[in-house]
Nucleic acid binder design. Structure first.
Lengths: 334, 334
DNA sequence: CCTTGTTGACGTAACGTTAAATCAAAATAG
DNA sequence: CTATTTTGATTTAACGTTACGTCAACAAGG
């Protein structure tokens, strides 16, 4: 591994000049001919700057961490992409962590915390980590940005309330009157339920209580079963979580309910999988890519000591992708 | 941020003692009472070792990279978990990268390459990266281990051939005679096809040609369509890729083929999703967690300069998980 | 011709850590 | 009671960068 010292020796200049060439520093000036001589020496020796030394000197690692709750949830695909891209524009690398493997005291977290391994942290979802982990994070000297609304931290969000409203209004417009909301726990789910409520109210319908069964396939199945036990069974359902939608489809199949003839389903969040299920699932596409980009920008605001931009991402808006899992109610009941 | 110097001052000792306390070094000795005094000072000042300085001094970052082709493929869940766990045991953090975002010259790769950001790299799948990226990697001074057989690198593998054989034999035992293999490209798919061939040969059946349509849902759908166009349609199908299985189910639905009555399907790799599809998919579970652990161990062999253990993981063996997508052929044809 | 300013560099002190070399004081051996 | 070893530390030199301060040589201005 060639160092700047080796390059300096080879080019017959001092260390300072090499560093200046590498960084394009204006303070230390040089003749154009010296510059190219140094550049040539760098080439020949295959010089690569040592990131670790750089980090130590500059007190910045050009690395940010992103913590997700279940990395392989396909909704995170575009989010990750947006984060990677924006981070690259800031010359930074992304360290990806999964909250699942992140019980308090885990290697990953302590490494990040106060050890100066990263310049900042992006966390998806408040309440993702136990309280003591969050307390540790709070005492961290490096900035933290929450993707999704948070109490004590800068945050940035997508318009979950609106997504719930869009999904519900679509079903209302298809003449459905008994629409139920299958959700999870936490702020995000709550927001989507609020949107559901709003659309129901606007249509003069009475919202059903929030069926909070959790996340994932099993949660969706449980939610549908609970919904079907109500005195008057729903004709349509808004599913909070994308993986829950898979469970809803499975449970409907098992209960002998055909979708969309007997039950219309609209999911929140759109992923490739939705178009490959049968029936293909009608879903609300959320601006996850933009959330990723905006999250990184807001984090770099904090890193630079500027106030964070924050707020809710409204461009693009959540958008309904119509497929086959929802249809108009022809036989009006009640 | 308190440094060792601050702790030393607070405890009334020299820097060396603090360092020795932190690292438990035997060379620099001290009285038990000084040790606790230093420990107390560390506590009071909230001292955290600076990882960057440590890395520079020791020329090791305690960080390894893992590069996957599509991070959110659920088959990687247990793999990641195994890698994280084993890495934590080595005191290391895992930097996760996605080959999709990794066109040559990408920030991520150059950061890892020769800049001393990581102690080693784990790559899933040969041919994942373009040739020039691989060339860059090859000139990297830090060790690289390929998860899946590789030509010019140390590697470690799961028993893909056997998985193909198990899936096929299961269908043979259900009296199927026209079994087709829908695969992707590359070494892994090839191995599984070999296993398929072997099981077909053993049963005295003639293997169909490898239908290599790629990866993902669309590939599965394409594969099934191609298979159905053969002069004698298959009664059973082995699907190489888990996400392809989703596509096979969708295409079967679209073609009016009911599974398993008209077509039996067995997938390779088992994930949660498989039990939540309808019909639930019979699949071969692969030891991905163990692959992750073994990969890290082998990589640390290389890092330590020991020869890599390498080889194919045989414990546990690939295991068939029987669900609803495959059934015995009752109406024997031909 | 002296003064001042500019160009093109160089030397060096950090950043926080680790480990080798060194050393005074106390303990032990002869 | 002196010689030697052991104990319990300290000093210091790196690791590879970056950026501040300095400085000689030369050009331009008065």
């Amino acid at each position: 591994m060639a160092t700047q010292r080796d390059v300096a020796r080879a080019a017959g200049v001092s260390l300072a000049v090499v560093s200046a060439v590498v960084n394009g520093t204006s303070h230390t000036r040089m003749r154009e001919s010296t510059r190219t001589r140094v550049l040539r020496a760098m080439q020949e020796l295959g010089y690569q700057p040592n990131q670790t030394a750089r980090s130590l000197r500059l007190n910045q690692t050009d690395m940010i961490a992103m913590i997700l709750n279940k990395i392989d949830n396909p909704v995170y695909g575009p989010l990750r992409y947006g984060v990677y891209e924006a981070a690259a524009e800031h010359g930074a690398t992304v360290l990806l962590g999964d909250a699942e493997t992140m019980r308090s005291g885990s290697q990953f977290l302590t490494r990040l915390l106060s050890q100066g391994t990263v310049d900042g942290i992006l966390i998806r979802g408040e309440g993702l980590l136990d309280d003591d982990v969050m307390a540790e994070l709070r005492s961290h000297p490096k900035p933290i940005l929450i993707l999704e609304h948070a109490q004590d931290h800068p945050w940035i969000d997508i318009d979950d309330r609106r997504a719930g409203e869009i999904a519900t209004r679509f079903l209302v417009n298809l003449h459905h009157r008994h629409i139920v909301f299958v959700g999870g726990s936490g702020y995000i789910s709550q927001q989507r339920y609020l949107g559901y409520q709003q659309a129901m109210d606007a249509a003069g319908l009475t919202p059903a209580p929030h069926l909070a069964t959790g996340f994932g396939e099993q949660a969706g199945a449980d939610g549908l079963r609970q919904a079907m036990q109500a005195p008057t069974a729903p004709t349509a359902i808004v599913v909070n979580n994308i993986m829950s939608a898979v469970g809803v489809l499975a449970a409907a199949h098992d209960l002998g309910i055909t979708i969309p003839d007997q039950l219309s389903v609209v999911g929140i969040h759109d992923v490739d999988l939705m178009q490959h299920l049968r029936p293909a699932v009608t879903a609300v596409r959320m601006p996850m890519y933009q959330l990723g980009r905006a999250g990184v920008e807001a984090l770099y605001d904090l890193i630079a000591g500027r106030p964070s931009a924050g707020g809710v991402i409204t461009d693009p808006e959540p958008e309904l992708v119509i497929r086959d899992s929802a249809t108009a109610l022809t036989r009006i009941r009640d």
